[in-house]
Design a protein around this nucleic acid. Structure first.
Lengths: 327, 327
DNA sequence: CTGTTAGCGCTTTCAC
DNA sequence: GTGAAAGCGCTAACAG
């Protein structure tokens, strides 16, 4: 049961391979007569053009790469889903890679993916600028940064409005009467952590907040848990850099005999799947994860197919979600 | 900045392309003299062989496909991570596809992936047998089934010991004094749900349990929540087909004013990330997700590279994890 | 409109 | 040991 190729089809339809190619790709006019003979033959033989040969010829593989820190982090699955759903519609295929935010691995992955002749790259990386990527972009690789922007690399990006989200959250907290703030943020290297910090700083200044504290740590449950255990003077509210951190904060607080939200308020960021089921359910800032993925994929495909070169950035809106971890 | 190819290297090293190919692939002896010249040239030119051309020639793409229901379901990310980590080590690349367990989509995806010339396929599908897959396997596609076995398709598989896990869980519950059981299971089509049901039936018979109930629904939070709300007579313990279902059960129970575990016990299956942080923390059966992914990838690569044809199945052990949702 | 032909970059006989 | 040359399956000039 040998694989049928374009030659077989040509023979069957008694035309040349170029004619077959033309009807497949609609790349040039073909007379109705021949066209129908070709279509007939294709159907009869069950012919499927080889993506790989086509790729060799055209340089296009209809494949895009996506480098993320870790699919195991609940923030990413929805993004990936948004990406994959859109790509599927456009007949593209997704190669997924986990980098653990290690710049060295990220750089290796870029190489691997370029080797695989991806048509474009979606990148959610550590914050550091990468020469490799910069170079690749200059060489014409289409890249869209997702959730995180890397300075120095001139490429399109999709992020959510971290600044506004954090600002709105803080203003809600202020209005709710919270006056002392403890912000356990994610890693300093991460773009979104830095932006959220900036919003925090601006808030503190604008409202002349006296009693506040900020610390960069990492976007994990453990970070929230451990840092909370070390807090000397409990503030009115502890702000987690993301929901995972907030979960850790809540659990630590409970172990310390403190009630959330009666004794302390706790907030997160992201609104991952479980935040509405957490006990107490988590006040947080919703990021449109699925939309971010979809939008980024959309931009990338536009970049690839329309040859658009204009660098564009999209900032998707965030939304404060008030639940029971604050009052 | 043109891409350098094997010819350029050959010219630079003053040898033939075949010699270059030989040293790259170590496919035939080459004299030390030429070999070092070639290596030199490769380094100097920064040459990287094109996977795609190689693929066209050899028919191998060093790419494997993975069809899963939905990466957004917390059960899958760890599996995917296990797969990807192993594949990376072996210089393979992962194409990820979500099927939503729709047999039609699954079948389309198989086509798409075959078109892309994957070297092998990891498949976690709906329960139904698929002619397409069966055919593909017969045509030589290497397939490993992950978490779910499809009847009628003769291929290797990796699953966890669902039967033993459920059996052990039930026996623990029995010993703990639970006497009436309500099992809200996942979807009837799913392999693991059926196995767990069988274990339940065998348990009920062996221990002559009088008071029990079983229902197939779906592996979701909502399923657990909704079915619980409809229960007339509350049993000693409600068994969720997976952790998600158990979460829904717990929340519904609480809304109904019932205490877990004081009034009712609740158990899950899988031990996903959040189960240890749920309130109350969930008694469940741990499946080695990461290991399953890794093992499946390992088997697939063995199938591909060693040309092993022996169909093999692996059943990975599960483990009852006792937490605070039972007593 | 249609066919012929030259590669895309690589591997692999087949001679030497 | 080494090189020349024939493709893998397809697309895109180039003729006609």
């Amino acid at each position: 049961m040998k694989k049928v190729n374009i030659k077989d089809v040509a023979k069957e339809a008694k035309v040349s391979v170029s004619t077959v190619s033309r009807v497949i790709n609609n790349s040039a006019p073909v007379s109705g007569e021949l066209k129908s003979r070709v279509i007939e033959a294709i159907k009869k033989l069950g012919y499927k053009p080889s993506h790989i040969a086509r790729g060799l010829r055209s340089g296009k593989t209809k494949t895009i790469g996506f480098i993320i820190p870790d699919i195991t982090n609940p923030f990413f699955p929805e993004i990936v889903r948004g990406v994959e759903d859109y790509l599927r519609k456009k007949d593209y295929t997704l190669i997924l890679c986990n980098s653990d935010q290690d710049p060295k691995i990220e750089s290796e992955l870029v190489d691997i993916l370029i080797d695989k002749h991806i048509d474009g790259l979606l990148f959610t990386g550590a914050g550091e600028k990468s020469e490799k990527l910069e170079l690749a972009v200059k060489k014409g690789l289409k890249v869209v940064f997702l959730d995180r922007i890397i300075e120095g690399v001139n490429a399109s990006y999709v992020v959510s409005d971290n600044y506004d989200g954090m600002k709105s959250l803080l203003e809600y907290l202020w209005k709710a009467g919270y006056r002392s703030f403890y912000f356990i943020n994610g890693s300093k290297e991460t773009f979104s952590a830095r932006i959220r910090y900036k919003a925090f700083l601006d808030f503190v200044e604008k409202y002349r907040v006296k009693d506040y504290h900020h610390i960069f740590s990492s976007f994990s449950y453990e970070a929230g848990y451990n840092h909370t255990k070390e807090i000397n003077r409990i503030p009115d509210v502890i702000i987690g850099g993301n929901d995972l951190i907030a979960y850790g904060v809540i659990d630590a607080l409970e172990e310390m005999g403190l009630d959330v939200p009666d004794d302390v308020g706790v907030t997160g960021f992201d609104d991952i799947l479980f935040s509405k089921h957490y006990k107490p359910s988590l006040t947080t800032v919703r990021q449109p994860m699925y939309e971010m993925g979809k939008k980024a994929a959309q931009m990338l495909i536009a970049l690839i197919e329309k040859g658009v070169n204009k660098i564009k950035g999209y900032v998707l809106p965030t939304e404060v979600v008030i639940r029971n971890s604050t009052q």
